[in-house]
Design a protein around this nucleic acid. Sequence first.
DNA 1: GAGTTTCGCTACGCTACCGTAGCGTAGCGA
DNA 2: TCGCTACGCTACGGTAGCGTAGCGAAACTC
Lengths: 182, 182
Amino acid sequence: MADPRVARSRRAILDAAVELLVEHGFAGATVEAISARSGAAKTTIYRQWPDKHAVLKAAVESIVPPAAPSDTGSLRGDLVAFAHDLDGILHTPPTSALIPGLIDTAERDPGLAAVLADFTAQRRKPVYEAVARAVGRGEIKRPEFVADLFLGPLFYRRLLSREPLDDAFIERVVDAALASTR
Amino acid sequence: MADPRVARSRRAILDAAVELLVEHGFAGATVEAISARSGAAKTTIYRQWPDKHAVLKAAVESIVPPAAPSDTGSLRGDLVAFAHDLDGILHTPPTSALIPGLIDTAERDPGLAAVLADFTAQRRKPVYEAVARAVGRGEIKRPEFVADLFLGPLFYRRLLSREPLDDAFIERVVDAALASTR
DNA sequence: GAGTTTCGCTACGCTACCGTAGCGTAGCGA
DNA sequence: TCGCTACGCTACGGTAGCGTAGCGAAACTC
């Protein structure tokens, strides 16, 4: 029923596309380069997707990292755990190298904007859940904005100031986010 | 001595380049499009810059916004003022539309990375100065990381969560940054 | 094993863009 | 006014990339 050749070439193509996006950004991820690296013929690529845009979108979608749920019993512990998880995503490929290009492309591409929104939501969801638990425990009083206060400085370091997320910084970010909730 | 024609065409070319970067990103800012929009011939562009890359770099450099110094007497007041200034930069062209592309391009282009670093430094400098004054007044005790805690959430909203910087949010960001310094 | 489907390959047509050359013209400084 | 310089224009050569067509071969299903 299901021909394994389709899944095989599909995976090879998407893997090659992700590699090229990581190495050279959206400008360098051409159909011909994807074909050369994946070993799949250009015609095979166009048999599975209507155009280049669809290939790249599928490639990006194929690596949205799953949320990492964490319930340590305290909001502080949860946030520190999330921060370390996010540190990995922000500083190891493929996600690391893909985020800047995705943010830029999303500015003018509704389809990829949706993918980026999905990625953002994936990151915010466990934060919201941890905050909700903390509210339930009476641990904090003003839960609004916590996700922005917490995630903002972590992304800022990756995208703008280009400094690492060391433990001292993470502790401080968590402290600041928590301090304003009381 | 100085031929005004050079400055005139230079400005027309850079203005057109910025417009195209704003509208279509780096991919759409081609030399031919710049020529068409500016009214300057393609040859004139190549008389002033060695290649396309140099033109785009000059275009980006031409719009780095100046720092807005502010000294209200309290760190809180200074930060709120900076936040409103940054709100303008993050949400009105040309800077607004240029930042995502600049961040992405800087990943693989050392020249534009320097331009981005300059932009970032422009934003951080008055924050550092305000923090130094606050330390001098004995207003805060732990000045490190304040710039990240303060600027991070503001950029995060522009780039990732795409929510506006309303007054309630700005107040909260400032509160959080301040709370962790005591 | 027979029939079907997917594959890789080669070869295109087409467009967009880069960067250059040569020419005549118009604006500029002195 | 005169010489110089920057200009716009047209025309290139060359490259890269998109998406398509037709074919025989290989892999898969049943």
